[in-house]
């Protein structure tokens, strides 16, 4: 009987210590892990969009909730003024969701850049949305408002040949981005004030 109790006690104590230690380490590394994930998964797209900014957009970020989801906004400081943000939006593509990073200039409501972050489109066909910048560059300098559609649907965007569904997914993500931006613009502007140095 005593042996049984000892076994239970030892295992319980050991497990609780292990749990406590892991919780402590998780807490202290959580921020760094999030930073690393952003740097390596979304970082390349963010840096390409906010090229030439004088700060680190992955450090200077804030979150605003919209439609039950938390949106991360990455701040770009140009000429000492924080006036540009990049944020991610999602649209359904051919093989699953396409993540699209959109950079927008708050002063002119103008798109400064677009980049695909994550996708599972057909390699060599739909994947061109990410690898070939000519498609996403069509969005550049357009106002981020209203809806975006490919030309076959009566819109203004040239689809990637052979990948209409993918192109539609990106356009959908852009439309969603416009919706989020229009709804959150005052809050974004408010947050940006804190980043101007």
């Amino acid at each position: 009987m005593r042996e049984l109790i000892k076994m239970v006690v030892v295992l319980t104590v050991l497990s609780s210590f292990s749990g406590g230690l892991l919780a402590a380490i998780r807490n202290s590394t959580m921020e760094r892990i999030e930073y690393q994930q952003l740097t390596f998964v979304k970082g390349p797209a963010i840096r390409a969009i906010l090229e030439g900014c004088s700060n680190d957009p992955i450090v200077d970020r804030f979150k605003i909730a919209y439609d039950d989801a938390e949106n991360s906004f990455f701040v770009g400081v140009f000429n000492g003024e924080a006036n540009t943000v990049a944020f991610e939006s999602v649209g359904g593509g051919f093989g699953g969701d396409i993540g699209v990073m959109v950079g927008v200039d708050l002063k002119e409501d103008k798109i400064v850049g677009v980049g695909v972050t994550t996708h599972s489109e057909t390699p060599g066909v739909g994947s061109k949305a990410k690898s070939d910048p000519t498609f996403v560059n069509q969005f550049k300098d357009q106002p981020l408002t209203g809806t975006f559609q490919v030309k076959t649907d009566g819109g203004q965007i040239d689809a990637i040949s052979g990948a209409t569904v993918t192109s539609r997914g990106v356009a959908l993500a852009m439309t969603q981005a416009a919706k989020v931006y229009e709804a959150l613009k005052p809050q974004i502007a408010e947050q940006l004030k804190g980043f101007t140095k």
């Binding site: 230690l21 892991l22 590394t29 760094r32 994930q37």
Partner: peptide, 16 residues
Amino acid sequence: ATFVTVVELLMQAFTY
């Protein structure tokens, strides 16, 4: 298992 999870977290944090 505890130490493996520690390594996993540290690798995620420093050598992603």
